[in-house]
């Protein structure tokens, strides 16, 4: 039986790990490769790297990041952040990443999902969706959470699945950085709407939050600061989940 995954997220800027709270107030938490290796030893199932470097050298930066990580890691990892070209995707995979995620570009040009999945295979293509409750529906935001789109996240999730996405990385902008738990309503709505795996993201603060995300239908749950600052270890979260009857890799 497939284990529920615990994923660590590392936000990278200029080669260093940073993590924003509510997408602001960035603090430095270290070297990406060093942290990734530490997580592997602790038993993390996967690592997601979000590169927030804005640069003309983006391709090279992403390639080097993937390469450095892959030569030190023997668990899967995903790279994304500001990806706009097929060529960038190929560079990341060539560098050694297992999966690539795209966000804004997919919203602007949905056909790009089809194109990318034809090259990569669906299973290696993740679509990241940032969503926020607007009083009527969960609205998709792009450009790092700065621009609202008037698109319904649940509808968008269905569409990306149809276009060839292999997985959805679902971040709730309402809960991100709060440490008060994942957005269960959003997670449940999207998980129920699609057949592809959904990674819940935003709001992890303690072990029970992971249980709640899995109960809401998530296949994986992603966290950053809870692990970065050593508040909880990956192992302690997994042991808690196992005790609660969740199938995890321990």
């Amino acid at each position: 039986m497939l284990a529920k995954r615990i994923i660590a997220a590392l936000d990278i800027k200029n080669g260093r790990v940073v993590k924003g709270t509510k997408f602001k107030n960035i603090r430095d938490a270290g070297d990406p490769v060093e942290l990734a290796v530490r997580y592997e030893k602790e038993g993390i199932d996967e690592i997601v790297f979000l590169d927030i470097t804005a640069s003309f050298e983006k391709r090279k930066i992403l390639f080097n990041l993937a390469k450095n990580v892959s030569s030190n890691l023997s668990i899967p990892f995903t790279v994304g952040g500001g990806i706009r070209k097929l060529d960038e995707i190929v560079q990341i995979i060539k560098g050694g990443a297992d999966k690539v995620f795209i966000n804004t570009k997919a919203v602007e040009e949905p056909e790009f999902i089809k194109e990318a999945s034809n090259v990569l295979g669906s299973a290696n293509l993740v679509i990241a969706i940032d969503a926020k409750w607007n009083g009527k529906f969960f609205e998709v935001y792009v450009k790092g959470g700065r621009v609202a789109t008037d698109i319904d996240a649940v509808e968008w999730a269905k569409q990306v699945e149809e276009l060839g996405a292999g997985e959805i990385l679902l971040t709730s902008m309402d809960t991100d950085g709060t440490k008060n738990g994942f957005d269960r309503v959003l997670t449940r709505a999207v998980s129920a709407a699609v057949d592809i795996p959904v990674i819940a993201s935003g709001g992890a603060g303690k072990p029970v939050h992971f249980l709640e995300a899995f109960n809401a239908g998530a296949d994986a749950a992603l966290a950053a600061s809870i692990f970065h600052y050593g508040e909880f270890t990956v192992k302690s979260v997994k042991e808690y989940l196992q005790k609660k009857g969740v199938n995890v890799r321990l």
């Binding site: 039986m1 497939l2 284990a3 669906s122 299973a123 296949d219």
Partner: peptide, 9 residues
């Protein structure tokens, strides 16, 4: 659920 992604025995 497809793709089958993750750790399995």
């Amino acid at each position: 659920r497809v793709p089958h992604i993750g750790w399995n025995s």
